[in-house]
Design a protein around this nucleic acid. Sequence first.
DNA 1: TCCCCAACTGGGAGCGCTCCCAGAATTCTG
DNA 2: CAGAATTCTGGGAGCGCTCCCAGTTGGGGA
Lengths: 339, 339
Amino acid sequence: MPMDERPTLEDVAAYAGVSRSTASRALNDDEYVSTRAKEKVLGAARELGYSPNQAARSLVTRRTGAVAVVLSEPEANVLDDPYFASVMHGAFRELSDAGVQMLLMFVDTRDDVPRTIKFLEGGHADGALVFAPHKGDPLPTALRLARIPVVYGGRPGTGRRGAHAVDFDNEGGARLAVEHLHDSGRRRIGTVTGMLDHPAAADRLAGWQKALEAAGLDPTDLSEQGDFTMASGEVATAKLLARCPDLDAVFAASDLMAAGAMKALRAAGRIVPKDVAVIGFDDHPTLAPAMEPPLTSIHQDPRQQIREMVKKLLSLLTGENIRPETTVLPVKLAVRDSA
Amino acid sequence: MPMDERPTLEDVAAYAGVSRSTASRALNDDEYVSTRAKEKVLGAARELGYSPNQAARSLVTRRTGAVAVVLSEPEANVLDDPYFASVMHGAFRELSDAGVQMLLMFVDTRDDVPRTIKFLEGGHADGALVFAPHKGDPLPTALRLARIPVVYGGRPGTGRRGAHAVDFDNEGGARLAVEHLHDSGRRRIGTVTGMLDHPAAADRLAGWQKALEAAGLDPTDLSEQGDFTMASGEVATAKLLARCPDLDAVFAASDLMAAGAMKALRAAGRIVPKDVAVIGFDDHPTLAPAMEPPLTSIHQDPRQQIREMVKKLLSLLTGENIRPETTVLPVKLAVRDSA
DNA sequence: TCCCCAACTGGGAGCGCTCCCAGAATTCTG
DNA sequence: CAGAATTCTGGGAGCGCTCCCAGTTGGGGA
């Protein structure tokens, strides 16, 4: 073996004084290898600094040892949101514990869709963890046709039947928020929604509405649509305030919109939480505690989500025939000063 | 070719009525292929939905077509910081434009270092884009020994000689901040630093100090160390305030610490910016405009950084013999209400 | 004692591709 | 128009691995 080249399995086998086959068996701890042979091979591998050639292995096993994490979300949303950073970090940890590499792919232009499909179909990854929340997103349909093992993060907007997914209890979170507000005496509880083609936004709105009705309150005129950005939260809250001057609470479907709501309330001379209480959603680790006053918000644990997703995907990859279903994870209320 | 299997190059060649070699040449647009043959092959490939087997190709070319993006930074910093989200997104865009896949790796425990090195040495990626800012980080040294093409984001804390890197003008940014404060009449300009084993933090501190001295001001007692977190900014500012009650400006080395500073100032009854002006660093796209008052901050463009990094790495990979040097990118002042 | 079956080992084939080389077809030169 | 140069083509080898199969070893039961 020349000095400047990486050792191959053959080199390891020769060094250990066994055949290539035996070396392979030892390294992959197959059955039918004597402990003696196994020790020799493992020792040789360590000695030579052997690391198997993934390409050669892939060529025969038809497995790449890599999983793609696909974010199908407009650029701005991904960048603003530490949720995605958490997801990526968590995905890496979970996957690398399983010895799987993580390929990261963003899909934010229409052109990216065929490229992504082509890539995944091409067998460059064994499976995918996909975050594709928009209702019109063509990706889930295309993925289903391509018969690639996929687990979704969040309820996919399209092709909901027969998909493996892990979602948060968005409706329950909204209910939690409304109940907290109601319990502290609020009666005119408005909401600022996200884009309603986003299942999470729709679920949060539904939760708010059901909770109001359950409390015997009338939701009419009390909801205004935003788009998850701070500016939209500000505008929506101003409209809400103009329409219902007796507003005494705002449930915003994201912390960013809650920040906008606070701005609008401040501009209108309302004190938070004395005059109007505010609750956000996401429990943005940086933003929520930094706000003035610190924001009460619905907390969700992205790490738990990704852990479940990886677990499902790995089962899928080992050929386990698990039933396609959406696992729903609980959320909780993180109480601070704003409500 | 069976229906259920992916077509191989051989299938494409047969379909086009040429040999495997010619098909390969056509697909890789090599020289010495007739236009006629090329068209036939390309047509056949399209018809059959052919996508080359990357593993087989890697095996012979000894190139993986993938680049690793390595974040060697404690978990919390990565999660809080939309800078990293920007970097990852930008890296994906730039790399995929070049037909290169992106592998993401985090290094946050000591154990991750050998694993990462092993992985990169194993030839699983053609090169790496590394963010490893800490002074004691063993990664840069290990990477240099492993002779892997690497470009650093930010000045690497270790092994600075002979490394390819793209950094921001941290010192210049601090100077910009101080000059702005001085121009608006502030004379007691304190600073809250980041962890000083972080080159960016050290550079920002140096810039602050030099700018003060250039303006004929005395920096004594006016700097306090933080660790880039909000809580540390609050504590540091309180100390500063206790030591120098006539403080009229704070330059924080991160927006998060600026948020902490604002909290401390508010708690001490100081009005921002009337009594004390505050300037942050990073221009955090979510946090800075959401603060009350909106934060003046030093803006840096992570997209530009990653673009330069990818450019350097691709040159390195094509064997160009570019000189190892640190490219320094300009920053600018984003003026809002806090200063 | 012998045979059988389990436990183990080694060699061969082949995954799908690129590259090299020899030969065929075409074009260019004098 | 012959010969040389050039362009193009196809087959063979081989990248490093896993898997299959045939062969070898050793221990336990008849």
